[in-house]
Design a protein around this nucleic acid. Structure first.
Lengths: 234, 234
DNA sequence: CTGCATCCTCTTCGATACTG
DNA sequence: CAGTATCGAAGAGGATGCAG
Protein backbone atom coordinates (compact mmCIF):
# COMPACT_ATOMS: atom_id res chain seq x y z
CA UNK A 1 0.00 0.00 0.00
CA UNK A 2 1.44 3.35 -0.95
CA UNK A 3 1.88 6.12 1.55
CA UNK A 4 -0.86 8.52 2.40
CA UNK A 5 -3.73 6.76 0.75
CA UNK A 6 -5.41 4.79 3.45
CA UNK A 7 -7.50 7.54 4.98
CA UNK A 8 -7.76 9.96 2.12
CA UNK A 9 -7.22 12.89 4.45
CA UNK A 10 -4.75 15.76 4.34
CA UNK A 11 -4.68 15.84 8.13
CA UNK A 12 -1.20 15.23 9.51
CA UNK A 13 -2.70 13.09 12.22
CA UNK A 14 -4.05 10.81 9.53
CA UNK A 15 -0.63 10.61 7.90
CA UNK A 16 1.10 9.77 11.15
CA UNK A 17 -1.57 7.27 12.09
CA UNK A 18 -1.16 5.39 8.87
CA UNK A 19 1.99 3.70 10.03
CA UNK A 20 1.70 4.18 13.78
CA UNK A 21 -1.86 3.44 14.73
CA UNK A 22 -4.74 1.06 14.67
CA UNK A 23 -6.79 1.85 11.61
CA UNK A 24 -9.13 4.80 12.19
CA UNK A 25 -8.93 4.87 15.97
CA UNK A 26 -6.95 8.09 16.20
CA UNK A 27 -9.20 9.85 13.74
CA UNK A 28 -12.28 8.81 15.65
CA UNK A 29 -10.68 10.17 18.79
CA UNK A 30 -9.89 13.40 16.96
CA UNK A 31 -13.55 13.79 16.08
CA UNK A 32 -14.56 13.17 19.66
CA UNK A 33 -11.92 15.49 21.05
CA UNK A 34 -13.03 18.21 18.68
CA UNK A 35 -16.57 17.99 19.87
CA UNK A 36 -18.54 15.54 17.76
CA UNK A 37 -20.74 13.36 19.88
CA UNK A 38 -23.30 11.84 17.55
CA UNK A 39 -22.69 8.82 15.41
CA UNK A 40 -23.42 10.52 12.13
CA UNK A 41 -21.35 13.58 12.99
CA UNK A 42 -18.39 11.42 13.83
CA UNK A 43 -18.97 9.47 10.66
CA UNK A 44 -18.86 12.63 8.53
CA UNK A 45 -15.41 13.36 9.89
CA UNK A 46 -14.17 9.96 8.72
CA UNK A 47 -16.13 9.51 5.51
CA UNK A 48 -14.11 6.61 4.19
CA UNK A 49 -14.61 4.58 7.32
CA UNK A 50 -17.43 2.09 7.09
CA UNK A 51 -20.20 2.60 9.59
CA UNK A 52 -19.80 -0.98 10.69
CA UNK A 53 -16.23 -0.38 11.64
CA UNK A 54 -17.02 2.93 13.31
CA UNK A 55 -19.59 1.16 15.41
CA UNK A 56 -17.07 -1.45 16.37
CA UNK A 57 -14.38 1.08 17.21
CA UNK A 58 -16.74 3.06 19.41
CA UNK A 59 -17.48 -0.12 21.31
CA UNK A 60 -13.80 -0.79 21.78
CA UNK A 61 -13.24 2.69 23.13
CA UNK A 62 -16.14 2.25 25.53
CA UNK A 63 -14.75 -1.10 26.57
CA UNK A 64 -11.36 0.41 27.29
CA UNK A 65 -12.99 3.18 29.28
CA UNK A 66 -12.18 6.33 27.34
CA UNK A 67 -15.71 6.78 26.04
CA UNK A 68 -19.27 6.59 27.30
CA UNK A 69 -22.52 6.14 25.44
CA UNK A 70 -25.45 8.17 26.67
CA UNK A 71 -28.92 7.68 25.28
CA UNK A 72 -30.85 10.92 25.00
CA UNK A 73 -34.33 11.80 23.90
CA UNK A 74 -35.77 9.67 21.11
CA UNK A 75 -33.07 7.68 19.45
CA UNK A 76 -30.50 10.36 20.05
CA UNK A 77 -27.23 9.02 21.34
CA UNK A 78 -24.25 10.95 22.62
CA UNK A 79 -20.76 9.58 22.78
CA UNK A 80 -18.68 11.46 25.28
CA UNK A 81 -15.09 11.07 26.28
CA UNK A 82 -14.40 10.19 29.87
CA UNK A 83 -11.72 12.10 31.74
CA UNK A 84 -9.22 9.48 30.70
CA UNK A 85 -10.37 9.95 27.13
CA UNK A 86 -10.02 13.70 27.28
CA UNK A 87 -6.54 13.19 28.63
CA UNK A 88 -5.67 11.61 25.31
CA UNK A 89 -5.85 15.09 23.79
CA UNK A 90 -2.14 15.80 24.22
CA UNK A 91 -1.27 12.38 22.81
CA UNK A 92 -3.34 13.01 19.72
CA UNK A 93 -1.94 16.51 19.38
CA UNK A 94 1.64 15.37 19.74
CA UNK A 95 1.13 12.86 16.96
CA UNK A 96 -0.59 15.41 14.75
CA UNK A 97 2.14 17.91 15.55
CA UNK A 98 4.84 15.46 14.57
CA UNK A 99 3.12 14.89 11.25
CA UNK A 100 2.73 18.58 10.61
CA UNK A 101 6.40 19.18 11.39
CA UNK A 102 8.02 16.20 9.68
CA UNK A 103 5.86 14.76 6.94
CA UNK A 104 5.61 15.73 3.32
CA UNK A 105 1.91 16.23 3.27
CA UNK A 106 1.35 18.50 0.31
CA UNK A 107 1.17 15.62 -2.18
CA UNK A 108 -1.96 14.44 -0.44
CA UNK A 109 -3.63 17.67 -1.47
CA UNK A 110 -3.78 16.38 -5.01
CA UNK A 111 -6.88 14.42 -4.22
CA UNK A 112 -8.93 16.35 -1.72
CA UNK A 113 -12.23 15.23 -0.31
CA UNK A 114 -13.95 18.60 -0.36
CA UNK A 115 -16.81 17.41 1.76
CA UNK A 116 -14.30 16.57 4.46
CA UNK A 117 -12.49 19.88 4.06
CA UNK A 118 -15.69 21.85 4.49
CA UNK A 119 -16.74 19.69 7.40
CA UNK A 120 -13.41 20.40 9.04
CA UNK A 121 -13.74 24.12 8.45
CA UNK A 122 -17.29 24.11 9.74
CA UNK A 123 -16.09 22.63 12.97
CA UNK A 124 -13.64 25.44 13.58
CA UNK A 125 -15.68 28.46 12.56
CA UNK A 126 -15.49 30.84 15.45
CA UNK A 127 -18.65 32.80 16.13
CA UNK A 128 -17.76 36.42 16.86
CA UNK A 129 -19.91 39.17 18.33
CA UNK A 130 -19.24 41.46 15.38
CA UNK A 131 -20.87 39.03 13.01
CA UNK A 132 -24.56 38.96 12.18
CA UNK A 133 -26.73 36.10 13.36
CA UNK A 134 -27.11 34.01 11.33
CA UNK A 135 -23.83 34.50 9.54
CA UNK A 136 -23.72 32.87 6.15
CA UNK A 137 -20.63 32.23 4.05
CA UNK A 138 -20.77 30.89 0.54
CA UNK A 139 -17.78 28.96 -0.78
CA UNK A 140 -17.17 28.45 -4.44
CA UNK A 141 -14.40 25.94 -5.09
CA UNK A 142 -12.88 26.36 -8.48
CA UNK A 143 -11.02 23.11 -8.99
CA UNK A 144 -13.64 20.49 -8.27
CA UNK A 145 -16.56 19.02 -10.24
CA UNK A 146 -19.50 21.38 -10.43
CA UNK A 147 -21.62 19.20 -8.19
CA UNK A 148 -19.18 19.71 -5.35
CA UNK A 149 -18.20 23.30 -5.94
CA UNK A 150 -20.77 25.16 -3.85
CA UNK A 151 -21.02 25.10 -0.08
CA UNK A 152 -22.83 27.27 2.38
CA UNK A 153 -21.68 27.62 5.92
CA UNK A 154 -24.34 28.81 8.32
CA UNK A 155 -23.23 29.95 11.76
CA UNK A 156 -26.24 30.59 13.94
CA UNK A 157 -26.58 30.74 17.69
CA UNK A 158 -23.10 29.28 18.18
CA UNK A 159 -24.02 26.32 16.03
CA UNK A 160 -22.42 25.76 12.66
CA UNK A 161 -24.19 24.06 9.83
CA UNK A 162 -23.09 23.04 6.41
CA UNK A 163 -25.13 22.83 3.24
CA UNK A 164 -24.32 22.06 -0.36
CA UNK A 165 -27.70 22.88 -1.86
CA UNK A 166 -28.65 26.46 -2.61
CA UNK A 167 -31.65 27.41 -0.52
CA UNK A 168 -31.48 31.04 -1.65
CA UNK A 169 -29.43 32.00 1.35
CA UNK A 170 -28.89 35.61 2.30
CA UNK A 171 -25.13 35.38 1.95
CA UNK A 172 -22.93 37.68 4.03
CA UNK A 173 -19.55 36.68 2.67
CA UNK A 174 -18.61 34.97 -0.56
CA UNK A 175 -15.30 33.14 -0.94
CA UNK A 176 -13.95 31.87 -4.22
CA UNK A 177 -10.83 29.74 -4.10
CA UNK A 178 -9.47 26.42 -5.25
CA UNK A 179 -9.91 23.58 -2.81
CA UNK A 180 -6.18 23.07 -2.99
CA UNK A 181 -5.34 26.61 -1.96
CA UNK A 182 -8.05 26.63 0.69
CA UNK A 183 -6.58 23.49 2.20
CA UNK A 184 -3.09 24.92 2.27
CA UNK A 185 -4.21 28.14 3.87
CA UNK A 186 -6.39 26.36 6.36
CA UNK A 187 -3.59 23.98 7.32
CA UNK A 188 -1.24 26.87 7.91
CA UNK A 189 1.07 25.85 5.08
CA UNK A 190 0.46 29.12 3.28
CA UNK A 191 -0.56 32.58 4.34
CA UNK A 192 -4.13 33.79 4.16
CA UNK A 193 -3.27 37.42 3.40
CA UNK A 194 -0.84 36.37 0.69
CA UNK A 195 -3.45 34.24 -0.99
CA UNK A 196 -5.79 37.23 -1.08
CA UNK A 197 -3.09 39.56 -2.34
CA UNK A 198 -2.21 37.11 -5.12
CA UNK A 199 -5.90 36.93 -6.06
CA UNK A 200 -5.83 33.19 -5.44
CA UNK A 201 -8.48 33.62 -2.81
CA UNK A 202 -11.26 36.04 -3.62
CA UNK A 203 -13.38 37.23 -0.76
CA UNK A 204 -16.40 39.51 -1.15
CA UNK A 205 -18.80 41.02 1.32
CA UNK A 206 -19.08 43.77 3.90
CA UNK A 207 -15.56 44.89 4.71
CA UNK A 208 -16.46 44.70 8.40
CA UNK A 209 -16.62 40.94 8.00
CA UNK A 210 -14.03 40.24 5.33
CA UNK A 211 -11.32 42.19 7.13
CA UNK A 212 -11.42 39.79 10.06
CA UNK A 213 -12.03 36.69 7.95
CA UNK A 214 -8.88 34.98 9.15
CA UNK A 215 -10.28 35.17 12.67
CA UNK A 216 -13.72 33.67 12.20
CA UNK A 217 -12.61 31.24 9.54
CA UNK A 218 -10.07 29.78 11.89
CA UNK A 219 -7.36 27.32 11.03
CA UNK A 220 -6.58 23.70 11.63
CA UNK A 221 -5.45 23.09 15.17
CA UNK A 222 -1.99 22.14 13.94
CA UNK A 223 -1.63 25.23 11.76
CA UNK A 224 0.58 26.89 14.32
CA UNK A 225 3.19 24.17 14.36
CA UNK A 226 6.32 25.01 12.45
CA UNK A 227 7.26 22.68 9.62
CA UNK A 228 10.77 21.40 9.10
CA UNK A 229 12.49 22.77 6.00
CA UNK A 230 11.38 20.77 2.99
CA UNK A 231 14.66 18.86 2.67
CA UNK A 232 14.37 17.43 6.18
CA UNK A 233 10.88 16.10 5.78
CA UNK A 234 10.03 12.52 4.98
CA UNK B 1 -9.23 -10.25 22.88
CA UNK B 2 -9.09 -9.28 26.49
CA UNK B 3 -7.27 -6.22 27.68
CA UNK B 4 -3.60 -6.22 28.47
CA UNK B 5 -2.65 -9.53 27.02
CA UNK B 6 -1.47 -8.87 23.55
CA UNK B 7 2.06 -7.80 24.31
CA UNK B 8 2.60 -9.43 27.64
CA UNK B 9 4.38 -6.38 28.93
CA UNK B 10 3.82 -4.30 32.05
CA UNK B 11 4.97 -1.20 30.19
CA UNK B 12 2.28 1.48 30.06
CA UNK B 13 3.24 2.20 26.49
CA UNK B 14 2.35 -1.37 25.64
CA UNK B 15 -1.01 -1.00 27.36
CA UNK B 16 -1.84 2.21 25.53
CA UNK B 17 -0.65 0.80 22.25
CA UNK B 18 -2.93 -2.17 22.52
CA UNK B 19 -5.97 -0.21 21.55
CA UNK B 20 -4.36 2.81 19.89
CA UNK B 21 -1.56 1.53 17.73
CA UNK B 22 -0.48 -0.78 14.99
CA UNK B 23 0.64 -3.99 16.56
CA UNK B 24 4.18 -3.79 17.90
CA UNK B 25 5.23 -0.66 16.07
CA UNK B 26 5.34 1.59 19.12
CA UNK B 27 7.29 -0.95 21.12
CA UNK B 28 9.82 -1.33 18.35
CA UNK B 29 10.18 2.45 18.31
CA UNK B 30 10.64 2.41 22.05
CA UNK B 31 13.50 -0.02 21.72
CA UNK B 32 15.12 2.13 19.06
CA UNK B 33 14.59 5.33 21.00
CA UNK B 34 16.15 3.75 24.06
CA UNK B 35 19.23 2.85 22.16
CA UNK B 36 18.95 -0.63 20.73
CA UNK B 37 20.26 -0.75 17.21
CA UNK B 38 20.84 -4.41 16.44
CA UNK B 39 18.16 -6.80 15.31
CA UNK B 40 18.62 -9.23 18.14
CA UNK B 41 18.76 -6.51 20.78
CA UNK B 42 15.52 -5.04 19.53
CA UNK B 43 14.04 -8.49 19.44
CA UNK B 44 14.89 -9.11 23.08
CA UNK B 45 12.91 -6.03 24.01
CA UNK B 46 9.81 -7.42 22.29
CA UNK B 47 10.18 -11.14 22.99
CA UNK B 48 6.67 -12.11 21.99
CA UNK B 49 6.99 -10.53 18.59
CA UNK B 50 7.94 -12.96 15.88
CA UNK B 51 11.20 -12.23 14.13
CA UNK B 52 9.39 -12.31 10.82
CA UNK B 53 7.11 -9.52 11.91
CA UNK B 54 9.95 -7.52 13.43
CA UNK B 55 11.77 -7.72 10.16
CA UNK B 56 8.72 -6.52 8.32
CA UNK B 57 8.07 -3.66 10.73
CA UNK B 58 11.65 -2.45 10.45
CA UNK B 59 11.23 -2.34 6.70
CA UNK B 60 8.09 -0.32 7.04
CA UNK B 61 9.80 2.18 9.28
CA UNK B 62 12.65 2.48 6.81
CA UNK B 63 10.15 2.94 4.00
CA UNK B 64 8.40 5.72 5.89
CA UNK B 65 11.72 7.38 6.58
CA UNK B 66 12.08 7.26 10.34
CA UNK B 67 14.75 4.57 10.30
CA UNK B 68 17.91 3.69 8.41
CA UNK B 69 19.72 0.41 8.02
CA UNK B 70 23.50 0.54 8.08
CA UNK B 71 25.62 -2.50 7.36
CA UNK B 72 28.71 -2.64 9.49
CA UNK B 73 31.65 -5.00 9.72
CA UNK B 74 30.89 -8.63 9.07
CA UNK B 75 27.18 -9.30 9.18
CA UNK B 76 26.65 -6.59 11.76
CA UNK B 77 23.73 -4.32 10.99
CA UNK B 78 22.72 -1.16 12.79
CA UNK B 79 19.26 0.31 12.68
CA UNK B 80 19.29 3.98 13.51
CA UNK B 81 16.50 6.47 13.78
CA UNK B 82 16.60 9.41 11.44
CA UNK B 83 15.99 12.89 12.82
CA UNK B 84 12.32 12.48 12.03
CA UNK B 85 12.39 9.19 13.90
CA UNK B 86 14.05 10.69 16.94
CA UNK B 87 11.41 13.37 16.89
CA UNK B 88 8.88 10.65 17.62
CA UNK B 89 10.32 10.48 21.12
CA UNK B 90 7.83 12.94 22.61
CA UNK B 91 4.96 11.15 20.88
CA UNK B 92 6.01 7.84 22.35
CA UNK B 93 6.55 9.41 25.76
CA UNK B 94 3.18 11.14 25.76
CA UNK B 95 1.49 7.86 25.02
CA UNK B 96 3.49 6.05 27.68
CA UNK B 97 2.79 8.88 30.09
CA UNK B 98 -0.92 8.67 29.47
CA UNK B 99 -0.82 4.96 30.19
CA UNK B 100 1.16 5.44 33.37
CA UNK B 101 -1.26 8.10 34.57
CA UNK B 102 -4.60 6.64 33.57
CA UNK B 103 -4.43 2.87 33.18
CA UNK B 104 -4.85 0.16 35.73
CA UNK B 105 -1.64 -1.60 35.02
CA UNK B 106 -0.98 -3.52 38.16
CA UNK B 107 -3.05 -6.52 37.08
CA UNK B 108 -0.58 -7.10 34.28
CA UNK B 109 2.07 -7.74 36.89
CA UNK B 110 0.45 -11.07 37.63
CA UNK B 111 2.22 -12.66 34.72
CA UNK B 112 5.61 -11.08 34.34
CA UNK B 113 8.13 -12.00 31.72
CA UNK B 114 11.20 -11.84 33.92
CA UNK B 115 13.55 -11.94 30.98
CA UNK B 116 11.97 -8.79 29.71
CA UNK B 117 12.05 -7.13 33.10
CA UNK B 118 15.75 -7.79 33.50
CA UNK B 119 16.42 -6.68 29.94
CA UNK B 120 14.61 -3.43 30.69
CA UNK B 121 16.55 -2.88 33.86
CA UNK B 122 19.81 -3.65 32.12
CA UNK B 123 19.10 -0.92 29.63
CA UNK B 124 18.72 1.68 32.33
CA UNK B 125 21.55 0.81 34.65
CA UNK B 126 23.49 4.00 35.14
CA UNK B 127 27.23 3.56 35.41
CA UNK B 128 28.56 5.76 38.20
CA UNK B 129 32.12 6.75 38.99
CA UNK B 130 31.82 5.48 42.55
CA UNK B 131 31.20 1.95 41.33
CA UNK B 132 33.89 -0.61 40.57
CA UNK B 133 34.54 -1.63 37.01
CA UNK B 134 33.18 -4.13 36.25
CA UNK B 135 30.23 -3.76 38.56
CA UNK B 136 28.28 -6.96 39.03
CA UNK B 137 24.83 -7.30 40.53
CA UNK B 138 23.18 -10.59 41.22
CA UNK B 139 19.40 -10.76 41.28
CA UNK B 140 17.50 -13.54 42.92
CA UNK B 141 13.82 -13.46 42.09
CA UNK B 142 11.75 -15.29 44.64
CA UNK B 143 8.46 -15.79 42.86
CA UNK B 144 9.48 -17.40 39.59
CA UNK B 145 10.49 -20.91 38.53
CA UNK B 146 14.00 -21.80 39.61
CA UNK B 147 15.31 -21.76 36.06
CA UNK B 148 14.45 -18.08 35.77
CA UNK B 149 15.29 -16.93 39.24
CA UNK B 150 18.96 -15.97 38.88
CA UNK B 151 20.28 -13.08 36.84
CA UNK B 152 23.60 -11.33 36.74
CA UNK B 153 23.95 -7.81 35.55
CA UNK B 154 27.43 -6.84 34.48
CA UNK B 155 28.15 -3.18 33.95
CA UNK B 156 31.57 -2.72 32.43
CA UNK B 157 33.07 0.16 30.48
CA UNK B 158 29.70 1.85 30.13
CA UNK B 159 28.27 -1.29 28.61
CA UNK B 160 25.67 -3.38 30.37
CA UNK B 161 25.36 -7.08 29.93
CA UNK B 162 22.91 -9.61 31.21
CA UNK B 163 23.49 -13.23 32.05
CA UNK B 164 21.35 -15.95 33.54
CA UNK B 165 24.02 -18.58 33.94
CA UNK B 166 26.37 -18.53 36.91
CA UNK B 167 29.91 -18.03 35.68
CA UNK B 168 31.24 -17.68 39.19
CA UNK B 169 31.01 -13.94 39.07
CA UNK B 170 32.66 -11.74 41.63
CA UNK B 171 29.38 -10.21 42.75
CA UNK B 172 29.42 -6.69 44.22
CA UNK B 173 25.76 -6.42 45.14
CA UNK B 174 23.14 -9.07 45.72
CA UNK B 175 19.44 -8.29 45.46
CA UNK B 176 16.71 -10.65 46.54
CA UNK B 177 13.17 -9.66 45.73
CA UNK B 178 10.04 -10.94 44.07
CA UNK B 179 9.71 -10.12 40.40
CA UNK B 180 6.39 -8.55 41.21
CA UNK B 181 7.82 -6.17 43.76
CA UNK B 182 10.83 -5.40 41.62
CA UNK B 183 8.53 -4.45 38.76
CA UNK B 184 6.46 -2.17 40.95
CA UNK B 185 9.48 -0.41 42.34
CA UNK B 186 11.10 -0.10 38.98
CA UNK B 187 7.95 1.33 37.43
CA UNK B 188 7.67 3.91 40.16
CA UNK B 189 4.44 2.49 41.51
CA UNK B 190 6.01 1.78 44.86
CA UNK B 191 8.90 3.23 46.77
CA UNK B 192 12.34 1.67 46.77
CA UNK B 193 13.22 2.67 50.30
CA UNK B 194 9.90 1.40 51.59
CA UNK B 195 10.41 -1.96 49.94
CA UNK B 196 13.77 -2.25 51.70
CA UNK B 197 12.37 -1.14 55.02
CA UNK B 198 9.57 -3.70 54.75
CA UNK B 199 12.17 -6.37 53.97
CA UNK B 200 10.43 -7.09 50.68
CA UNK B 201 13.60 -6.19 48.88
CA UNK B 202 16.81 -7.47 50.38
CA UNK B 203 20.01 -5.85 49.22
CA UNK B 204 23.47 -6.95 50.31
CA UNK B 205 26.92 -5.70 49.52
CA UNK B 206 29.31 -2.91 50.32
CA UNK B 207 27.30 -0.13 51.89
CA UNK B 208 29.07 2.31 49.56
CA UNK B 209 27.16 0.72 46.72
CA UNK B 210 23.89 -0.34 48.31
CA UNK B 211 23.28 3.11 49.76
CA UNK B 212 23.03 4.62 46.32
CA UNK B 213 21.32 1.63 44.73
CA UNK B 214 18.30 3.65 43.68
CA UNK B 215 20.61 5.81 41.62
CA UNK B 216 22.48 3.19 39.61
CA UNK B 217 19.53 0.84 39.37
CA UNK B 218 17.48 3.53 37.76
CA UNK B 219 13.80 3.43 37.05
CA UNK B 220 11.52 3.15 34.08
CA UNK B 221 11.41 6.37 32.12
CA UNK B 222 7.77 6.84 33.05
CA UNK B 223 8.35 6.26 36.75
CA UNK B 224 8.23 9.96 37.46
CA UNK B 225 4.75 10.47 36.07
CA UNK B 226 2.07 10.78 38.70
CA UNK B 227 -0.73 8.26 38.56
CA UNK B 228 -4.36 9.23 38.89
CA UNK B 229 -6.01 8.07 42.10
CA UNK B 230 -7.05 4.45 41.74
CA UNK B 231 -10.75 5.26 41.36
CA UNK B 232 -10.18 7.44 38.30
CA UNK B 233 -8.16 4.92 36.39
CA UNK B 234 -9.52 2.69 33.67
C1' DC C 1 -31.01 8.82 13.70
C1' DT C 2 -28.40 4.96 15.20
C1' DG C 3 -26.94 1.35 14.45
C1' DC C 4 -26.70 -4.39 13.91
C1' DA C 5 -26.36 -9.01 11.29
C1' DT C 6 -24.45 -11.49 7.83
C1' DC C 7 -21.51 -12.88 4.36
C1' DC C 8 -17.45 -12.93 2.11
C1' DT C 9 -12.84 -11.33 0.98
C1' DC C 10 -8.35 -9.81 1.95
C1' DT C 11 -4.67 -9.22 5.16
C1' DT C 12 -2.01 -10.18 8.92
C1' DC C 13 0.54 -12.88 11.76
C1' DG C 14 2.91 -16.77 13.85
C1' DA C 15 5.34 -21.22 13.44
C1' DT C 16 8.69 -23.60 11.44
C1' DA C 17 12.56 -24.42 8.95
C1' DC C 18 16.33 -22.73 6.40
C1' DT C 19 20.45 -19.57 4.62
C1' DG C 20 24.67 -16.55 4.21
C1' DC D 1 24.42 -12.26 13.81
C1' DA D 2 20.63 -11.23 10.73
C1' DG D 3 17.52 -12.41 8.65
C1' DT D 4 14.02 -15.03 4.63
C1' DA D 5 10.49 -18.41 2.67
C1' DT D 6 6.44 -20.67 2.97
C1' DC D 7 2.12 -22.13 4.73
C1' DG D 8 -2.03 -22.14 7.17
C1' DA D 9 -5.05 -20.11 10.78
C1' DA D 10 -7.20 -16.30 12.54
C1' DG D 11 -8.84 -11.85 12.30
C1' DA D 12 -10.04 -7.44 10.27
C1' DG D 13 -12.85 -4.98 7.44
C1' DG D 14 -16.22 -3.75 3.56
C1' DA D 15 -20.85 -4.19 1.38
C1' DT D 16 -25.38 -4.72 1.85
C1' DG D 17 -29.73 -4.87 3.78
C1' DC D 18 -32.58 -4.45 7.67
C1' DA D 19 -34.57 -2.68 12.18
C1' DG D 20 -35.91 -0.07 16.26
Amino acid sequence: MSKHVQYGQYCPLAMSSEFLCTRWTMLVLRELLFGSSQFNDISRGVPRMSRTLLSSRLKELIEVGVLTREEGAGSLVHYRLTNAGKALGPVVMSMAGWGQEWLKIEPSVEDIDVGLLMWDIRRNIKPMPQLPNPFIVEFFLTDVPESKSQHWLISEDDKNDLCHIDHGFDVDVYIKVSAKKLTKVWMGWEDFATAIKDRELIIKGDEKYTRIAVKWLGQSSVAGIKKQPEENRI
